[in-house]
Each structure stands twice: as C-alpha cells, then as structure tokens.
Computed example of a mutant assay.
Amino acid sequence: MHILQALFFPPEQPGGVSSMIPFMQERFNKRGWEMELFSLPKRVRGKGTEPVSFTTFDWHVYEGNPIVDKYIQTYRDYIWWTKLRITKTYDLIHAHHPIAALVMKQLFPDTPVLMTVHSSYERELILNGKIKENGPEEAFLTALYRELEERADQLITVSNSFKQYLADYVQEPDRIGVIPNGFDERRFRPVPHENKIPQLITVCRLVPAKGLDTLLLACAELKKRGQPFVLHLIGDGPIRPQLEQMAVELNIYEEIIFYGYMLHPEDFMPFFDVFVLPSRAESFGSVFAEAALCGLALVGTNVGGIPEQIVHGHNGLLVPVDDVPALAAALEKVAGDPIFRYNLGRVAWDKAQSAYSMARIVQQLKSVYRIYRKDDKV
C-alpha cells in the first residue's frame, strides 16, 4: 500500500504534527508500508492562479478580508506546487491540514483522502487577538469543516473534546474518528536526576493563547510565599518582549530563563521536574504527552484535550483557565512536595506510554488505512 502524508508545514518545522509525521513514516516503512511526505515550502508564495471554489459554501462572500484572501492564495499555491511535484498516484492520501486535504481531493478525486483535524485555527486567531469572535474570518474558517466533511473520505481528530467542537460545524459528527497524536518513545524518556530547587518548564509558542501571563503571575505568587523555583521558558513568539518586561516588573526575572526557539527541547526536558502550561485553548496539547513521556509531573488547564491527558491528582493537576490563585496553589503543591511530584510523574509516564506511544498510534492508523487497501499485501 502506497500512502502519501500531505502536510502543510515542511517536516523540519519545530513542534506539532510536522515534527511527528517523519517518525511515524519511519515506523511504517520499516514494516513494509510505502509512505512518503509532501508539504508546501515556505518559499512558495504567490505562485498559484487557479480559481478556487467549494461545494458547500461560497467563499467569495468573505473576499477582500486579508486573512481570507491570504488563505485562498495559499490554497492556490498548494495546487500549483502539487501539480508541479506529484507525478504518480497513491493508494491513499492522509492529509493533516484543510488546504492539503481539499487540494488533494480536487486533484486526485479517485484516491481516498483521510483528513486529521489537529487544531482550530480560528480559535487560535481569536485568542491571539488577530480576529474577532463571530466575525467573517471565523465564519469562513469554520465553514471549511463542513467542506472537509463533504469531500474527504474520512475525518479524524485528536481528542474527544475537539470532536465535540467540530460537531457544531458538520452534519454527521458521529462519523468523525478520534486518534490522538503519537510520540516516539526513543525521543521522549525519563532520565534519573535530582534538583535541589524545583525546576519548572514550559515549551510553547509565545502567544496570548498559551496563558503565559497567568503563569508569570502565579510564579510571582510562589516567590511571595517563599517557594524557591526556576522556570525554564522554551519558545519564541510575538509577546516575548512583553513577557520579559512583565517578569522584571513582577520581580521574578532572576527565576526565569527565556531560551527562545529550540529545535530539540526533548534532549534536556527530562532533567526538569514539572511541566506547566496554562493554555486558554488546546485541541490536544501534544507537549503534555511529550512531557509525560519524559517523566515530568504535569500542571495544565481544564480546557480542550488537556483533561483527556491529565486526571487531576493522579498524573497531574488541573486548574481553571486564567485562575492565578489556583495555578499558584497547584505549583506550590508540586514544587514543595518531591514525593507527590515524583508519583505524579511516574503515573503520567505510565499513561502516556499506554495511550500515546508511537507504536500504539501506528496500530490505530493501520486499522483505518486497511479499510482503503486494494489488495491483501499489508
């Protein structure tokens, strides 16, 4: 069976699905499955010129909006690049972005196309202050879910929570499958260590949606209570200057290390103690699974797919979104009690191994792929 994994970002991009798929490809290829990757290079911009139309709505209603126009141009670019680069057929195409799925089905209508919806672009834009809720951009982006349902052969998403979110925009939500992201156990694994001062870590893009302002306020409260800690903040983004200034004003700059972008944070993530990320929205929250596989105690918000990974008090702690006192109390609990912290990390590792290991996810995907195979070879 010859399968194409159709991405949006190139595989060398940090984090998320783009960095996960090559490891999945390796597992499949070793087992005799032919799998290739395809994506749109960043240098391809403004090349496509073909007209774009959808079957379930008229996108021209939103024409003239900068975000919509940019999305449509990227769609045209993906068509141009696909026509230029793909010269053979596949038994199955598994897409990981709406543009990739819709373009592939347009150009290869006889090939089964599966689509995994990994995240909500419209929620990200709203939370990051780029668009207004209930505005034309959100209407356009959410209309694409119905278009995907109409044209893709199978919709999959990464959490039950996000499946419920999609239910408002499709006609048959029960047909949406749920397969979480998988993580290579060889990349993420615990390392024995002992830190005299509790080491907190977060890994994310520095944008408002991640709730890092709430984290800094909670850390300031920790310091006031006399709880020592170091926060390692890995990632970059548009609000980094504001966060650094906030840390100075809260008198916690000495307790925080701003690393900026890092290609392989998993190389030293296991040497920390607690992973914390107070996101305001997460369809799945891959970094929580990565941290769990490194044996860290988890602290997250009770939103999106995070509660599907964290059972409060069992393998981590959950707090409400934007609740500074609750987050400070949770951090104080895990930072001040090494035995409790160790037990949370141990159980988190067990759960992640059983639920999110690459081996398990590969088996789940094989079961779906086999539905579309044309022979009995694999």
Score class of each variant (00 low, 15 high):
residue 93 I to L: 04
residue 47 K to L: 12
residue 32 G to Y: 05
residue 178 V to Q: 04
residue 116 T to Q: 00
residue 158 V to H: 05
residue 362 V to C: 07
residue 223 K to F: 00
residue 72 I to A: 03
residue 362 V to Q: 08
residue 56 T to C: 08
residue 183 F to E: 01
residue 174 D to R: 13
residue 144 L to H: 04
residue 344 L to V: 03
residue 78 Y to C: 00
residue 377 K to W: 01
residue 177 G to I: 01
residue 231 L to V: 00
residue 370 R to K: 15
residue 94 H to C: 02
residue 376 D to L: 14
residue 50 E to S: 11
residue 56 T to P: 07
residue 2 H to L: 12
residue 301 T to C: 02
residue 127 L to E: 07
residue 149 E to G: 10
residue 36 E to G: 12
residue 311 V to L: 12
residue 246 M to Q: 14
residue 205 R to H: 06
residue 4 L to I: 00
residue 244 E to R: 13
residue 247 A to M: 12
residue 299 V to W: 01
residue 186 R to W: 05
residue 225 R to S: 10
residue 201 I to Q: 06
residue 67 I to S: 03
residue 66 P to A: 06
residue 64 G to R: 14
residue 100 A to N: 04
residue 309 Q to H: 00
residue 198 P to S: 13
residue 94 H to Y: 06
residue 77 D to Y: 06
residue 318 L to G: 12
residue 370 R to Q: 10
residue 363 Q to M: 12
residue 353 Q to S: 10
residue 322 D to F: 09
residue 359 A to V: 14
residue 247 A to W: 03
residue 151 R to Q: 02
residue 328 A to L: 08
residue 270 P to I: 07
residue 226 G to R: 12
residue 277 L to S: 11
residue 24 M to G: 01
residue 154 Q to H: 12
residue 28 F to E: 02
residue 288 F to K: 10
residue 332 E to R: 15
residue 179 I to W: 01
residue 243 L to I: 03
residue 159 S to F: 02
residue 34 E to T: 12
residue 206 L to K: 05
residue 105 K to Q: 00
residue 121 Y to F: 13
residue 208 P to W: 07
residue 259 Y to M: 10
residue 372 Y to K: 10
residue 220 A to M: 02
residue 112 P to E: 07
residue 155 L to N: 03
residue 259 Y to T: 13
residue 318 L to P: 01
residue 156 I to L: 04
residue 314 H to F: 01
residue 201 I to Y: 00
residue 125 L to C: 01
residue 226 G to W: 09
residue 129 G to V: 07
residue 232 H to W: 02
residue 215 L to F: 07
residue 286 S to V: 15
residue 202 T to K: 07
residue 246 M to E: 06
residue 312 H to D: 11
residue 128 N to A: 02
residue 245 Q to V: 01
residue 283 S to K: 12
residue 370 R to H: 14
residue 241 P to A: 12
residue 13 Q to E: 10
residue 120 S to F: 03
residue 197 I to V: 13
residue 216 L to G: 04
residue 6 A to S: 04
residue 175 R to V: 11
residue 154 Q to K: 11
residue 378 V to Q: 09
residue 76 R to Q: 10
residue 308 E to F: 04
residue 298 L to S: 08
residue 268 F to D: 10
residue 89 T to C: 09
residue 224 K to R: 14
residue 12 E to S: 08
residue 34 E to S: 15
residue 37 L to Y: 02
residue 350 D to H: 15
residue 199 Q to Y: 04
residue 144 L to Q: 07
residue 15 G to C: 00
residue 93 I to S: 00
residue 3 I to G: 09
residue 241 P to L: 05
residue 298 L to K: 07
residue 341 R to P: 00
residue 299 V to Y: 04
residue 358 M to R: 11
residue 224 K to M: 07
residue 19 S to T: 08
residue 219 C to N: 06
residue 314 H to M: 12
residue 274 V to K: 03
residue 345 G to Q: 07
residue 352 A to C: 10
residue 354 S to A: 12
residue 16 G to T: 13
residue 50 E to P: 09
residue 69 D to K: 10
residue 91 D to L: 05
residue 76 R to D: 01
residue 131 I to S: 08
residue 153 D to I: 10
residue 316 G to V: 01
residue 322 D to C: 11
